[in-house]
Nucleic acid binder design. Structure first.
Lengths: 329, 329
DNA sequence: ATTAAATATGAAAAGCTTTTCAAGGAGAGT
DNA sequence: ACTCTCCTTGAAAAGCTTTTCATATTTAAT
């Protein structure tokens, strides 16, 4: 591949002059300028971003670490990131972690080697190894998903507790006596846990005794929604079910339909996430919609502001919205 | 951020020695080695990949250009790419083109600047500007989606015509008299066009007169499936509908159910893509499953082989499979 | 016509790592 | 004791671009 010396030789000028033409950084004799432009055009020469990055100590690259890009939430998130990054002439290096803390830290180290200007990380937990890495790194960090407080971390997060609380309150407001829940795994500080607590709070506020509450913990899969719905019905005849994500809600509906229980007439169902399926399914599924695309945009904006040294918001909230569809009317 | 000179100073050795320790490239006095390792550990130093890349003329980075990452097909594709790249210690720079040729070429130019080792491109058309770029670039190129023949391009593609032909034949084999189709946009050489031709071929082979064939062109959205199903029924009472993708198939089913037409008893429906929704929907949707994840894996394998100078397959086929579900039983 | 100012241009250094080359030191063999 | 090897180690160059600095040339001004 050609370098700037080659171009200079072809145009009969010095590398400095070529650089000046490319970057419009100083006056160049018009005739020479034309000669250089012509050579650039003919050769399709592009300056080596590695050399530039080395010089400026800046790569115009952001690292993005998500658990799984094929999850629609994260692909929307990444889409927002890519769009906003592009508009600010940044590119993104995309890495997936499978939600494994070890691999997450591995990603950080590789991104550090590649000298990305910032890292956007969708993760659930901050282990000591994460923190150790952060301590040794001065790369701006934006964390999405959990409400982390650690040094100069910027965190973008959804108030899962409140969103879940609102969803359950919405069901009670329809005159439901008792709402059951299919939760996600209840790790401390996880999104699934907060959603469960929101459910708890709303239920207690509606006069349900905590002992009488019905909830089963699933694992966010359709199958677990199906099976936990079964378990719930074996235990009690409830009027509404709130699931910690849409897949489990759809699994639950599937079980109900398979057993000739009408949704929403007999049992109302509300999910969480607004998966594209929610809209299409019959009956369409009421759910909490989170704008992951916008979250991605905000993450990039925060990262760029941080590395440009302007602005210093540390906590950025994500908007959500209850979408009412057939499953809970 | 620290550089290798700083580490050398801290450990009381020369940069060369630090380099030797990091890369295990030569014998180093054990005592010094320990000192260096200790400093590395304490500082969390990582060598600058830009400098390395400059030296070796190699970045261990692949460029990936897809139309839209939030499309499940492409996110599966990218997932496969990322996994296989990682296993070969490559990273990926992800860019989205929105299927706009101008932006695609823009992406190529940025990726060239960043000196990626190879480019994987999911696109539909090869304009003159694409070709001009390719002529000026010696970066290995893997194109996914269309059967491109241009210089040293490697192309990974699905035989859309044959897949569609098989799907329609499958419907006729069920004793259907006439199959209607909801096509995608019929640009020349596009996937949508090939799927239409496959439908044509299978229909003619089953004795349908081309004049009597019913097909409506949609735009791959659910809405267009819904509306085109209506148009088809206004024209003729068909027994089966083949849609060029699952979204349109689901839109069609929705229209049928809304109008009390039973699927599959009254009308059978087959889609294309095996969108995750296809499996979950009631009735579940028969479709053509394409392994996009594996396509991504193969793309990376081909790219790496090419840039390592081993192997030189130019055409790599993608496997597909008819998945029979409730909508066509 | 002469000096000051402005314009244009190239050489060189910086940014960071790796590898080659040369040299120093230690150990072994005669 | 001397020479030959082998092992260690550091200096320096290469990879590419940009910017500063100094030089050369032209223009303007007196």
């Amino acid at each position: 591949m050609l370098n700037i010396r080659d171009i200079a030789k072809l145009a009969g000028v010095s590398p400095a002059t070529v650089s000046r033409v490319i970057n419009n950084s100083a006056n160049v004799n018009e005739e020479k300028r034309q000669r250089v432009l012509e050579v650039l055009e003919q050769t399709g020469y592009k300056p080596n971003a590695l050399a530039r990055g080395l010089l400026y100590n800046k790569t115009f690259t952001l690292g993005v670490v998500v658990p799984d890009i094929s999850n629609i939430n994260f692909s929307e998130f990444v889409k927002g990131i890519e769009k906003e990054a592009r508009q600010n002439s940044y590119n993104i290096i995309l890495m997936t972690s499978g939600n494994e803390p070890e691999r997450e830290v591995e990603c950080f180290e590789i991104l550090k080697e590649k000298r990305v200007d910032g890292i956007i990380f969708a993760g659930t937990i901050l282990t000591d190894r994460h923190k150790q890495h952060l301590d040794n790194s001065n790369i701006p960090f934006v964390v999405f998903g959990q409400d982390f407080e650690y040094k100069s971390l910027i965190s973008i997060n959804l108030d899962n507790l409140k969103a879940s609380y609102d969803a359950v309150r919405y069901l009670y407001s329809k005159g439901i006596k008792k709402v059951a829940m299919i939760t996600g795994p209840l790790w401390d500080k996880s999104a699934g846990y907060d959603r469960y607590i929101g459910f708890l709070k709303a239920s207690i506020e509606n006069g349900i005794n905590q002992r009488d509450l019905i909830y089963k913990d699933g694992d966010f899969t359709i199958t677990s929604g199906y099976e936990n719905m079964k378990k719930i019905l074996e235990q009690d005849r409830v009027e509404a079910v709130f699931a910690a994500n849409d897949f489990m809600a759809l699994g639950a509906i599937k079980y109900l339909l398979d057993n000739n229980i009408k949704v929403p007439q007999d049992i109302k169902v509300v999910g969480f996430d607004d998966n594209p399926i929610a809209k299409i399914y019959t009956p369409s599924l009421s759910t909490i919609k989170i704008d992951f695309y916008n979250a991605g945009v905000l993450a990039v904006k925060a990262a760029i502001k941080c590395l440009d040294g302007i602005g210093d918001e540390k906590r950025i909230p994500i908007e959500y919205e209850i979408i009412e569809r057939q499953s809970s009317i």
